[in-house]
């Protein structure tokens, strides 16, 4: 590129540079010689970047190319320690590299980097090898924790707000930071065995460089998670992260409330699943009361609103 004399040329220049930065590294964590399309990366670098007396254009590009990959990989290693342990480093690295090639970050914050990993894994399950379903369960579980950590909160519903309302018309919302998960593996127990560092959660660096390769991190690898049906609520309480196992009926009830069903309809769904006999009907009623007391004390129930997503706009 010979000049940057307009906004359009600046954009084209930045496209070319970004195209080089996004090129995946080779297995030695170095910049590759060729693009997947066969273009010579050294020649492309030389057309944009000046060499100096110590470094060629290619070597200068490599500094940025490595920093890019170390940074984004590092972020996913931090956010998905359970998936890393489950797949092992080699498979995890292959998965997240393919994911980042397909889905480069589209957010100003690395917090959102893993937001499309579940869909990617659904579309490309072979990256998880034999543990596809467990890997999917783990991705859902770990993403739910990111949402629970700093997702929005609404004011919990007050007794006064629902006073006098009838179950057939009463609806609740659930806290946006609360995720309900129906999983086929005990990934909650598995992650407890993996995790040791609870200080993660905020990225605080203002430096734009990293010379640490992600594989320098060590992660415990417990035995595979137990295959069992697990219902989880991933949430926060007093701004600390928690996950709580739910009974199947409680999960159905909460899910029904979340989809906008009335209290009566949601309870009926749970009741249908529980199939209480005349003998244990009272016990189920008592259980319902306990659940609602518990969920209220945790602040999960909010006034009902029908949400519509907003579009992001640009200005200029």
């Amino acid at each position: 590129m010979s000049s940057v004399r307009s906004q359009a040329e600046l954009k084209e220049f930045q496209r070319q540079m970004a195209g080089l930065l996004f090129q995946p590294l080779n297995t030695a964590w170095k910049t590759r010689k060729k693009t997947p399309g066969g273009d010579d990366i050294a020649a492309m670098a030389a057309s944009l970047i000046k060499p100096n007396d110590r470094l060629s254009s290619f070597e200068r590009l490599q500094i940025y190319n490595r920093c890019y990959w170390f940074r984004v990989l590092d972020s996913l290693y931090d956010d998905f320690p359970g998936l890393l342990a489950l797949l092992g480093n080699r498979k995890f690295l292959k998965l997240v590299t393919a994911y980042l090639i397909r889905h480069p970050s589209e957010s100003f914050t690395l917090r959102n980097l893993g937001s499309r990993l579940e869909n990617f894994l659904l579309a490309e399950p072979e990256y998880a090898g034999e543990r596809q379903q467990a890997a999917l369960d783990m991705v859902r579980f770990e993403w739910a924790q990111i949402v629970a950590f700093d997702g929005p909160a609404r004011k919990p519903v007050s007794a006064r707000e629902i006073q006098g309302q009838h179950p057939e018309s009463l609806r609740f919302g659930l806290q946006p930071y609360l995720t309900l998960l129906a999983l086929d593996h005990a990934v909650d127990h598995y992650l407890l065995a993996v995790k040791s560092d609870e200080t993660a959660g905020l990225r605080s660096a203002a430096s734009n460089t990293s010379e640490k390769t992600p594989i320098q991190k060590s992660t415990r690898r417990p035995a595979a998670p137990k295959k069992e049906r697990v219902y989880l609520a991933v949430h926060r309480y007093e701004n600390a992260l928690f996950y709580k196992r739910l009974e199947p009926e409680a999960f159905v009830l909460l899910t029904a409330l979340k989809t906008g069903l009335t209290l009566e309809s949601a309870c009926n769904k749970a009741l249908k699943l529980a199939k209480p006999t005349r003998k244990n009907s009272a016990a189920f009623q008592l259980k319902l009361a306990e659940w609602f007391a518990d969920w209220s004390s945790l602040g999960w129930l909010t006034p009902y609103t029908s949400d519509k997503p907003k579009k992001t706009k640009t200005i200029l």
């Binding site: 940057v4 307009s6 940074r71 480069p104 970050s105």
Partner: peptide, 21 residues
């Protein structure tokens, strides 16, 4: 600069030092 076409590098990349930029 650090993003183009809505894709983010999460890096602080040096500018081309031109009057247009």
């Amino acid at each position: 600069w650090g993003s183009v076409d809505g894709r983010y590098t999460h890096d602080l990349l040096p500018m081309p030092y031109t009057f247009a930029a």
